[in-house]
Each structure stands twice: as C-alpha cells, then as structure tokens.
Amino acid sequence: MSEPETQTLIGGPGQYTAINVPAAQSGRSSRAYKVAGITLLACVLIAGQAMVAYFLLSQRSDIKSLEDQSNDLKAQLAKGRSVAVPMRMHLPMNSLPMLMDDSVDQDSIQSTEAPEIDPKQATVCQLEAAGLKPVQVPGFKPVCDERGLYLAQQCYEGQCWCVNPADGRLIPGSVRSGRARCGAVVVTGSLSKALTA
C-alpha cells in the first residue's frame, strides 16, 4: 500500500517548485508533538515540586519562630489568669434598673439581735425564725419585719424569692439567683392586693 503524497510549493518570487511530501511524515510529527508536550508537562511538574520544597525549607526557620512565639503567649496567658485584675464591665443603660437594689438590706436585719419571743404572742414568722416551729426547707429561717410579718423578699444560699407577707407563701415565678424584685402585686385567694417591701 502506498502512502498518499501531498504537494508543497517552495521557492521565491517568480519561481515555485512543487515537492511531494509523503503523508506518513505528518503522522510522525503529531506523535512527536505529543511526546514533547508530555515531556514539557513532566518538567513543569518537577520544577513546581522543587520550588515548593525550596520554599518550605527556606521558611522552616520562620515557622519554628512562630511556633515558639505561640507557645510563649500561651504560657503568659496561663500565668496571667491567676493574677489578672478584674475589668469593669460596660453595661447598657437599659439594664440599669435591674442593677438598682430596691429591696431591704437583709444583712442589716439579720445582724440585729432578735428580742425574746413569747410563743403565745408570736406570729408564725417569728416562731419559724426562732426555730420553735419547723419550716419546709431544713436550715432556712425566714426574716420577719417589726410587726412579725414575713418580709416580701426571703433569701437562702444565694437564691431569693418573693413571698406573701401575711402567710409566707412563695409567689410563683419570683425565684432568682441574687436579689428578687418584690414590689409587685401579691395574689391572695381571689383578691389581689398591692404590697410593697
């Protein structure tokens, strides 16, 4: 089988010569282009890997110094926690009413000495406060006012709640950590009365 030939013109102005070029040479040249392209791609990939290795090796000292700085900062933070000075917290103005204490100072009331109580004339609050009548929570002693009624706010182990001053019953939903706001309406039976602390 003979290979097909193509004619190519060669020459200068005025004189052209036709040369027959076998087609098989064009097939060999496309294979050569493929091999050259793959070789070039392999060289680019090898050169890229060499550059990455070079940059990693040249940056190793910088990475090591950054790791040392990070470890030093962690050590300083760990040391600083035990001697840190508390910072003043910035609060929005709309939370200011919650911070204001409008209740009676429990410490000043509890620090005063209770007068001798006559069990026949004492109120339930006074009997519970003196330990002469058991309470529902062991160890808790209610605080009474000068008339023998319960104070509107009662506290025990960091928890405070509001009670009905007449009978000492808990007002639902008033239990809080810290001071409770007890200047609200107290519901007794079917009537509601406004009682303030």
Rank of each mutant, 00 (worst) to 15 (best):
residue 2 S to D: 14
residue 3 E to R: 11
residue 5 E to G: 05
residue 8 T to E: 15
residue 13 P to I: 08
residue 16 Y to F: 10
residue 18 A to W: 03
residue 18 A to I: 13
residue 21 V to M: 05
residue 31 R to K: 09
residue 33 Y to N: 15
residue 35 V to A: 15
residue 36 A to E: 09
residue 39 T to V: 04
residue 40 L to A: 14
residue 41 L to R: 04
residue 42 A to E: 01
residue 46 I to P: 01
residue 48 G to N: 12
residue 51 M to H: 07
residue 54 Y to R: 14
residue 54 Y to V: 05
residue 55 F to L: 13
residue 56 L to V: 10
residue 57 L to E: 10
residue 59 Q to E: 15
residue 61 S to P: 02
residue 64 K to W: 06
residue 64 K to V: 12
residue 65 S to A: 14
residue 66 L to G: 00
residue 67 E to A: 14
residue 68 D to S: 09
residue 68 D to V: 07
residue 73 L to W: 05
residue 74 K to L: 05
residue 76 Q to S: 12
residue 80 G to A: 15
residue 86 P to R: 03
residue 86 P to K: 02
residue 89 M to Y: 09
residue 89 M to L: 15
residue 90 H to P: 03
residue 91 L to N: 10
residue 93 M to E: 11
residue 94 N to V: 10
residue 98 M to T: 07
residue 98 M to W: 09
residue 99 L to W: 10
residue 102 D to F: 13
residue 108 S to A: 00
residue 123 T to I: 04
residue 128 E to V: 04
residue 132 L to Q: 09
residue 133 K to C: 05
residue 138 P to H: 02
residue 142 P to C: 13
residue 151 L to E: 00
residue 156 Y to G: 00
residue 158 G to D: 06
residue 158 G to L: 04
residue 159 Q to F: 11
residue 161 W to F: 15
residue 163 V to Y: 05
residue 167 D to L: 10
residue 173 G to V: 14
residue 174 S to V: 05
residue 180 A to Q: 01
residue 180 A to W: 03
residue 180 A to T: 08
residue 181 R to K: 15
residue 186 V to Y: 02
residue 190 S to C: 01
residue 191 L to G: 00
residue 196 T to M: 07
residue 197 A to M: 02
